[in-house]
């Protein structure tokens, strides 16, 4: 099962390689990864998507905790959370498909960020399944290039 882990780290050189080295060295899987500074410049937040049964996820969480530079590990699957990815997709857009591509962009609330006579580059954000849906629907028209970010996630605030 897929798990999204949010990890707070000391913002120091080499810390990311401690995390990725742990995953490769112990045979765990990283499906996506995204790191950036938090409000506190001394701390960075790493969001990582991995998969495995509960024993593996438990072991991953514990092993991450064991790294001296790790401050906190949260398994987002245990809480209610929002996750987003962004993709920029360059898709063939010639006379007969230009309008259709724009319609699709509109349906998925995407934006055109680059235009050429024969293509559009669309920016789309959303959860991983939405990005996948856009890709699937654009594929027959002719996708020329895709860049995608890793997932970022935030826990929803308590409503009460």
């Amino acid at each position: 099962m897929k798990h999204t882990l949010s990890v707070l780290l000391q913002n120091k050189p080499g810390v990311l390689s401690r995390v990725t080295g742990l995953f490769s060295g112990r045979g765990f899987n990283i499906e996506s990864l995204s790191v950036n500074e938090t409000l506190d410049p001394g701390i960075s937040c790493l969001v990582l998507v991995t998969s495995g049964d509960s024993t593996i996820i438990e072991q991953i969480t514990k092993q991450l905790h064991k790294l001296i530079d790790v401050i906190k590990v949260s398994d987002m699957n245990e809480v209610d959370y929002v996750e987003r990815e962004m993709a920029i997709i360059r898709v063939k857009a010639e006379a007969n498909t230009r309008a259709e591509v724009l319609r699709i962009a509109d349906i998925f609330r995407g934006k055109v960020v680059d235009v050429s006579p024969k293509s559009y580059a669309l920016e789309v954000t959303g959860a991983a399944d939405k990005i996948q849906a856009v890709i699937d629907i654009l594929r027959p028209i002719g996708i020329q290039e895709i860049v995608r970010t890793g997932t970022i996630a935030i826990a929803r605030a308590k409503k009460k």
Partner: peptide
């Protein structure tokens, strides 16, 4: 003392 040792190989 090391939580990673617990339930690593044997539940």
């Amino acid at each position: 003392i090391d939580p990673t040792s617990i339930s690593k190989n044997v539940p």
